[in-house]
């Protein structure tokens, strides 16, 4: 059976394909996949899922390997081998608010998709805050008055800027990472180790 690799849909997808091609893997079937979520190449079975679901599939052994953002791993702490960073998908976590915003003299309200990361950040600062969990478009929260600030992932900062937000602090830098299921890494090691070594070589050559 071919190694099964779970890939994160969206932002990381295109960057992975470019990286994968640079390692001389066969990417042809992945380029013309249309809306298909499962693709077979000559060497691998791929499927595409949301970042957090990639970790769930790998943790449960449905996928042997996965490519996922480091932010997801820190936020959700899945029980997987978190092998090494890949040379794409670079971003950072930022605390952002409206330009010239005057912080209220009371407990702050912080909106974020990354509630665990937000909680840990303010805990380390020794500050109590109320965290509001949002599923997306978190930039809206300070603009519409739901929260004083947001904690969110930032790649170029353009979205923040276009929505009138400024970065108050930056912390944690991430990239995409290669993860592996704890058991199948051992059981299917003859198949998986050469693949991992090829990925690793790509990282070292960066």
């Amino acid at each position: 059976m071919k190694p099964v690799i779970a890939l994160t849909k969206g932002r990381l997808e295109k960057q992975f394909l470019a990286y994968f091609e640079s390692l001389d893997f066969d990417v042809e079937p992945l380029l013309d996949k249309g809306r298909k979520l499962r693709i077979e190449t000559s060497e691998f079975s791929f499927f595409f899922a949301k970042g957090v679901d990639v970790t769930t599939y790998v943790e449960n052994g449905i996928a042997d390997l996965g490519v996922v953002g480091g932010d997801i791993l820190i936020e959700h702490k899945p029980d997987v081998y978190d092998l090494f960073p890949l040379p794409f998908g670079h971003c950072r976590m930022a605390l952002a608010t409206k330009a010239n915003y005057e912080w209220p003299n009371q407990k702050k309200r912080i909106a974020s998709t990354f509630t665990n990361i937000t909680n840990a950040y303010f805990k380390e600062k020794g500050e109590s805050v109320d965290i509001i969990k949002l599923e997306g478009s978190v930039e809206l929260a300070p603009i519409l008055g739901l929260a004083d600030a947001i904690v969110d992932i930032v790649e170029t900062g353009t979205t923040l800027k276009e929505n009138g937000l400024v970065i108050a602090d930056e912390f944690l830098h991430f990239s995409a990472r290669l993860i592996a299921n704890r058991s199948t890494l051992k059981v299917k090691r003859q198949q998986l180790v050469p693949v991992i070594e090829r990925f690793k070589k790509g990282v070292n050559e960066e």
Partner: peptide, 17 residues
């Protein structure tokens, strides 16, 4: 603290950490 962090990094086979 560092020892525990290192042990966790080894547990996760997290090379860069």
């Amino acid at each position: 603290e560092i020892e525990e962090e290192l042990r966790n990094a080894m547990h996760n086979k997290n090379r860069d950490l």
